[in-house]
C-alpha cells in the first residue's frame, strides 16, 4: 500500500519518518555484515513477489508479503522493506521520497509486530505454524490498512470516509495474503524447517527477531 505524494500533512510525514528511522536503526543493528547479501536476496524476492498480480474475484490484486517478511526476518524486515519501497519509488513512482517514511512505517511496523508475536508458533510446526502463517499474512495487511487510515485521518478529519474505504478495500487482500502466507509457511516447513525456527542459512546461523 502506497500513499501518494502530496496527500499527508507535514507532522504526519515527520512522525512516519521518525518511526521508520528508529525501525531501520534497530533492524540494521541486528543485521550482521556477513548477512547483507542474504537480506538483499530476500529483499529482492519480496520486491519481486509484491509485483505479482494474483486473481481475486473478477479483478486482481498485488501482494504485499510484509507478513511473510516479518515472520522470516523479524526487525530486519524494516530495512529490507524500506529498500523495497525505495526501489518501487525509483523504478515505478509508487509512493515517493517525502512519503517514504510513512509508507515504510505502515508496511514494516505491522510486519515486525506480527513477526515478533507469531514467530514462536512457527517453530511448533504442523497446524500451529499454518495458523501463525495465516495470522501473520492477514494481520500485517490489516495493520498496514489501519496505519494508512490513521495517517489519512491525522492529516485531515475530512479524510475519514476515505480512510474507512482504505480499510474496507484491504479486507479481501488480507484474506488472500493470509492464504498465500499460510501455504508458503507450509511449503517452507516441509522443505526447510530450519527457516521457520529462525535460522536463515544452511549453516544454522540465526537471524535474531
Amino acid at each position: 500500500m502506497h500513499i501518494a505524494e502530496g496527500v499527508l500533512s507535514v507532522p504526519v510525514l515527520a512522525a512516519g519518518a521518525a518511526t521508520t528511522f528508529v525501525g531501520i536503526w534497530i533492524g540494521l543493528r541486528r543485521l550482521e555484515e556477513n548477512r547483507l547479501i542474504l537480506a538483499a536476496v530476500l529483499a529482492a524476492t519480496f520486491f519481486v513477489g509484491s509485483l505479482i498480480h494474483v486473481p481475486l474475484g473478477p479483478s486482481s490484486v498485488h501482494l504485499l508479503l510484509n507478513g511473510l517478511a516479518g515472520l522470516l526476518l523479524g526487525w530486519i524486515a524494516f530495512p529490507v522493506l524500506f529498500v523495497g519501497l525505495l526501489l518501487q519509488a525509483v523504478l515505478f513512482q509508487f509512493g515517493g521520497l517525502l512519503v517514504l517514511g510513512v509508507n515504510t512505517c505502515t508496511v514494516a511496523l505491522p510486519a515486525v509486530l506480527c513477526g515478533c508475536l507469531l514467530r514462536a508458533l512457527l517453530a511448533r510446526g504442523g497446524r500451529t505454524a499454518l495458523v501463525a502463517g495465516f495470522a501473520a499474512g492477514a494481520g500485517a495487511v490489516l495493520g498496514t490498512a489501519l496505519l494508512t487510515a490513521l495517517a489519512l485521518t491525522l492529516t485531515d478529519q475530512g479524510f475519514l470516509v476515505a480512510a474507512k474505504l482504505v480499510v474496507a478495500a484491504h479486507l479481501p487482500l488480507a484474506a488472500v495474503e493470509g492464504l498465500v502466507a499460510m501455504f508458503a509457511v507450509g511449503f517452507l516447513g516441509r522443505t526447510r524447517p530450519d527457516l521457520l525456527a529462525g535460522r536463515m542459512t544452511s549453516a544454522g546461523e540465526a537471524m535474531p527477531c
Binding site: V41, L56, A184, S202
Partner: peptide
Amino acid sequence: PRCTMHTYRTYAVLLGQTVLRSLSRAERIH
C-alpha cells in the same frame, strides 16, 4: 490462475521455491 485455493497454493509454492533458490544463491554470492 483463477480465484481458487489451488491458485493461491501454487503462487505460495512458487514464492517459497524462489525464497529457497534465493537463499542458496545468496550463499554462493557471498
